[in-house]
Design a protein around this nucleic acid. Structure first.
Lengths: 249, 249
DNA sequence: TAGTGGTCTAGACCACCCG
DNA sequence: GGGTGGTCTAGACCACTAA
């Protein structure tokens, strides 16, 4: 023995560490259990703390660990499946599906959203902030962009409800619900949490998130665009009628 | 000036760097252009190389940069939208949609897949390896798991085609196509590339990927399971009839 | 106040690509 | 061989949490 693989692999240390720790998690730990702190672990494996952290970062990315500053590193529960199927959704805010409207921001739409909405430069846009909560956990933060032209009833009367309130947000959703929804499409991509989203999701800025962009079509044009950011570490987005898919490692 | 924000933010350096560089990418660089090397950039910004790298890593995660060892860092093109909508897909391998079967591995199914297939312990499974190529770029690597019970025609005759060949892989797909597809569902989650997938995708092991798990239902049971890993840096998964969604920062 | 993870530094060496 | 990004080290200090 010894020459089994003939100098087989210059495998990075952190990669090997990740494997070893990952297997230990399966066999020796239970969900919620706290791991030894990083300095101890690094010493135990005979590596620098930075190297150990590289392994932990990957495990956290895969949803196997959860780390919180000032607290420690714990074994994460399996990812929760959140339904984002396109079929059973009508307009946002219709029927209670875990979303709650928070307020209406006054910000303008970012360039990328303006492009999707085919906005004329300077055209006014309503922005509704919503959070998606399941089991007491905030799993997603969304910004819903509605061009003023899509909800004309809100534009002429200047302020039936003060801007930036949950009441006004509901007003926007109500007006939106009056339109005929002709279709919608979605896209999913990887992103990193902006500062405000990170705060809502109880993560640090830059944390990996799954960005779900939904386009709502009505009267032959894009009537609204929603950009929802889901916690990538704890969420598994499901499409279709299966909420019981469970993928691990 | 100077006291505009009154010592506002103990914002991490790498976060600020990411913003600055990101803006520079928009204004001063074009797609494909190569950036100065990391040592130069770090010196220019007056930070350690590790800090600079932290910023570049995030930008790469967001699909704005592309880094290759021995080559350099280049400005990435916008992410390509790849259609993974559940509606227009029948069985895998039917009709050419960018997937090409490569071979059939002999490995057993991992525990998580066995659970989805409700496999009896030790039950045989066909494993088909497929790659998805668009514009000459391999964007996804897939493993398709088909229980032997789903394709009985292949189990009695021991070897109509040698195992591990593209011919046999096509045989599995052909037999699968004979079944009545009753439904399918999908889930998307973040993962990190295994060594073999990383190689196919021209990435380093551990690179962030979007894992799409598809369950094919037939005769009231799960007839097959596909686990496809998409490059998270270059891909945007689209559902529905919109291939022209374009989200950038 | 003690202990945790998060940030940052200034080096070093390695694996890879290309001329 | 020279230049690139990838890995690794051994420290230091900071921000946050909880007792």
């Amino acid at each position: 023995m010894g020459t089994t693989q003939l100098e087989a692999a210059p495998e990075p240390k952190y990669w090997h560490l990740k494997t070893v720790i990952g297997e230990a998690l399966d066999s020796d730990f239970t969900v919620g259990e706290v791991l030894p702190n990083e300095r101890d672990l690094a010493a135990r494996f005979g590596v620098a703390r930075a190297t150990l952290r590289q392994a932990l970062e990957q495990l956290e990315l895969e949803g196997r660990l959860q780390r919180r500053r000032g607290v420690g590193t714990t074994v994460a529960p399996p990812r929760v499946g959140v339904d984002v199927s396109t079929t059973q959704h009508s307009w946002p805010g219709m029927g209670e599906d875990g979303w709650q409207s928070v307020d209406r921001a006054a910000d303008a739409a970012p360039a990328a959203v303006a492009r999707l909405l085919e906005l004329a430069p300077g055209e006014q846009v309503h922005v509704v902030r919503r959070l998606r909560v399941t089991d007491g956990q905030t799993v997603a933060a969304e910004l819903l962009y509605v061009p003023a032209g899509s909800v004309p009833a809100l534009t002429d009367a200047d302020a039936p409800d003060p801007v930036g309130t949950a009441t006004h947000a509901r007003g926007v959703l109500r007006e939106l619900g009056r339109l005929a929804l002709e279709g919608q499409d979605r896209s999913v991509e990887l992103g990193s949490a902006r500062a405000d989203d990170a705060k809502e999701l109880d993560r640090l800025p830059g944390a990996p998130v799954l960005v779900v962009t939904t386009r709502y079509l009505s009267a032959g044009r894009t009537a609204a665009v929603a950009v929802a950011t889901y916690r990538a570490d704890t969420c598994r987005l499901t499409f279709g009628d299966s909420g019981d898919l469970a993928m691990a490692s």
